[in-house]
Amino acid sequence: MRDIVLGDVTVTRVMEFTGPVGIRPDEFFPGSSGESWEKHTDWLAPDFLDPDTGICLAALQTWVLRSEGRTILVDTGAGNHKERPYSPVWSHLRTDFLGNLARAGVRPEDVDLVINTHLHVDHVGWNTYLDDGSWVPTFPNATYLLPRADFDFWNPANGHPSRLGRDNQNVFEDSVTPVHDAGLALLWEGSHRIDANLTLESAPGHTPGSSVLSLASGSDRALFVGDLLHSPFQFASPDTNSCFCEDPAEAAATRRRLLGRAADTRTLVLPAHLGGHGGAEITREGDGFAVRSWAPFSRV
C-alpha cells in the first residue's frame, strides 16, 4: 500500500530515493559496535543494512497528509540540481520526485502546507526548484512551516559552528531563503497547532530546532519524527546517536522520551529515512524498544 488512513487523515508515502548512502554503521553511529549491529542483522537486513557490503541503507521520502481539506507535505528531501560539494550523495540529483508526487494525486499548486521537521540538506531540497537560473518556491500556494530555532541556527549570517561542518553548505541560500523572501514562511517555536488532528512539537537535539509532527485522530496515533532516528537499530539502542546530532545528550534524551510515549500509546513511528515499510509500532523491551509491527506500507 502507498496510502493508509488514520482516523480522519490519509497518509501517502512518496519516495525520492532509496538505497545505500555510502557510510558504515560505526561511522554513521559513532560508539556503536560491530557486534551490536550483527546481533540485529536478522531484522535490519536487507531493508536497512546491506549484509554483503555492511553499508547502511536509507530512504528519502515525503509524507503527504490530507487533513481537514488541506494537503500537507512533511519534509521535502534533497531536491534536484542542488550544488552540494560536501554532500555528494545529494548533489545534482535528477530524480522524478515531482512525478511521484503527481502519481500520488498532488500537483505543486495543490499543496497547502509544507513542514520541514528541521533544516538539513535532505529535508528541504524540494522547497525550491531551479527556474531559468533562479531558485523559486516549488509549492507556490503553500505556507512553509519552519522551526525558528533552526532558521536562526543555519542562517550563515549568524555564524554558528555545526557538527555537520560544510555538509549543509548552500542549503539555506537555495532552499530556505527563497521561500522566506517570497513571504511563504511561517517561523514557529515551542509547539504549533495545525488543525484538530495535527500538532507540531519541538524535539531538539539532532538540531536545535528539530521537531516532530503528532497525529491524533479518533483512536489512531502517529508520530512523524524526522531524524529522531535514522535506523531502526536506534529502537533497540535509543541512546545511540547519528554522527549528525548537534547535541548528543539532548538528542538521546529526546529520542527516549518520544519513543517511550509512542510505545506506551501504541503510536505509529514514521521517520524520514526508513526504507522497508517506512516505520513501525514499537513496544518496550529491556532498556530499549522492539518492533511490535511494521507500518502497513508496502516495502520499498
Rank of each mutant, 00 (worst) to 15 (best):
G125T: 00
R94W: 15
L198P: 11
A78C: 08
A78E: 02
V212I: 12
A149M: 15
L184R: 13
N155E: 00
H206Q: 13
V89C: 09
V89L: 10
G105K: 07
E173L: 04
E83G: 11
G209K: 11
N197H: 13
L213W: 12
F151L: 04
T143D: 12
V121G: 06
F172R: 13
W126E: 03
A149N: 06
L213V: 07
N197Y: 02
E83L: 08
L93P: 08
H180A: 13
N170M: 00
F139M: 05
H118M: 13
H81P: 11
H206M: 12
A157R: 07
A203Q: 02
D132C: 14
G159K: 06
R163W: 10
R94K: 11
H118K: 11
Y129Q: 09
H123E: 11
K82R: 08
V124A: 13
A104I: 02
V89H: 06
D174F: 09
R166Y: 15
S91R: 07
D122W: 01
T95S: 11
R94A: 10
D174E: 07
N141I: 07
A185M: 14
R107P: 08
G205L: 07
D167M: 07
A157V: 06
P178S: 11
T128M: 00
E201A: 01
S91A: 12
P156G: 06
N168D: 14
F172E: 08
S210Q: 06
R107W: 02
A104P: 01
N127A: 14
R166H: 05
R193M: 12
N158Q: 08
G159P: 13
P178D: 06
F172G: 10
F153N: 02
V121T: 07
S210A: 07
L187C: 13
P88M: 06
L145G: 12
R166D: 09
I115M: 09
L186G: 06
D96N: 05
W135V: 10
V179Q: 00
T95R: 01
L187M: 04
P85A: 01
S91P: 09
D167R: 15
H92T: 14
L119V: 09
H118E: 08
G209P: 10
W188C: 03
N80I: 15
D195I: 04
L119N: 08
N158T: 15
D167L: 15
D150N: 05
G159D: 04
P147E: 05
S87G: 04
P161W: 11
L184P: 08
A196H: 13
V114A: 06
L113Y: 06
L184H: 07
S87R: 04
P161F: 11
D195Y: 01
L164V: 09
P85M: 01
S175Q: 13
F172D: 11
V212E: 12
D150Y: 03
D152K: 07
H206C: 08
S191D: 05
D181W: 15
I194G: 01
G209M: 06
H206A: 12
D174P: 10
E201W: 02
G205Y: 12
L184E: 14
Y86S: 02
A182D: 15
T199V: 02
S134N: 04
P178H: 03
R107H: 15
D150T: 10
G125F: 00
N127F: 02
G125Y: 00
A157W: 10
N80F: 05
A78M: 03
S162K: 09
V136Q: 13
A157H: 08
V179I: 00
G209T: 15
P178F: 03
W188D: 14
D150P: 05
P204Q: 00
